[in-house]
Amino acid sequence: MSDPILIPRPEGLYCPQGDFFIDPSRPVARALITHGHADHARAGHGAVLATRQTLEIMAIRYGADFAGQRQAYEAPLRLGEVTVSFHPAGHVLGSAQIAVEAGGQRIVASGDYARVSNPSCAPFEPVPCDIFISEATFALPVFRHPDPAQEMEKLLASMRAAPERPHLIGAYALGKAQRVIMLAREAGYDAPIYIHGALQRLCDYHIEQGVPLGELRPATMDKAEAGGLREALVIAPPSAFASPWVQRFADPVIGFASGWMQIRARARQRGVELPLVISDHVDWEDLTRTVTEIDPAELWITHGREEALMRWAELEGRRARPLHLVGYEEEPE
């Protein structure tokens, strides 16, 4: 293969012919951002190109001046000597894969992506390419995420079985929290859902963007009021569980919505009583199926469990290489 159009650098994936980075972990002159999770979308770049929703999410998180210039992606465009296009990734609201093309070669940086249905964003679009860059967050054959509706049923059953205990569910502020709320609504739970203050603006933004979340109430009540909460569903970011905020609830059931919850030891380490395997990443089967479907000439692997995916590629007779990019957290946010 001729000189690749993207090369891994310490700051992230760099495109020399277009002079930009994709999801850089340090401030750079020009960045293309796949989605709004903090380890992919950082503040302080000179110019940012991303989907309109990702730009708006970054503005909510970092303030309107998070970058010198902002450009919302609308249609394929030329940047230097390359053509860039954005395609749905099915991960969170606004998430995109970024395709970069030059001289008849196309690379797709998929960022984080998922194949299960997620009503807050357009489904993942397989883009034919020569090089497919894939995350490897859940790239071990033990990760086979169950149907999220079934996990939601587990939560609702627990609420029925222990109606006197409020259920506090940990969920990341962007994407997962709204996903849990939507799953509850789809399962017919129509009572008000309480949300931690840190989720308010992103939930409001989802509603603005036409994602129905039903009636939400702030879980910022004082101890007397919270102590009286019995049959209630409360969503909060994981960090809240280590803060005094959680103390206001009487004898809560602590749950956590994450793909990691499939591993018992992970759940127990966190002191989780109700693990909910709800993920916004591809599991092993979706990941390997996606690569097979796209059938790139080469597979590049970024953050996560590279070794297992490398081994799979070897068994399948696929060319693959790990990128060893730094700065992407195992657990986003």
């Binding site: 071990l140 054959p141 033990v142 591993i263 030891a265 469990r305 070794e307 297992a308 081994r311 799979w312």
Partner: peptide, 10 residues
Amino acid sequence: ELFALSYDYV
């Protein structure tokens, strides 16, 4: 090998 990597993790 995939099993060993998985067991190591779980």
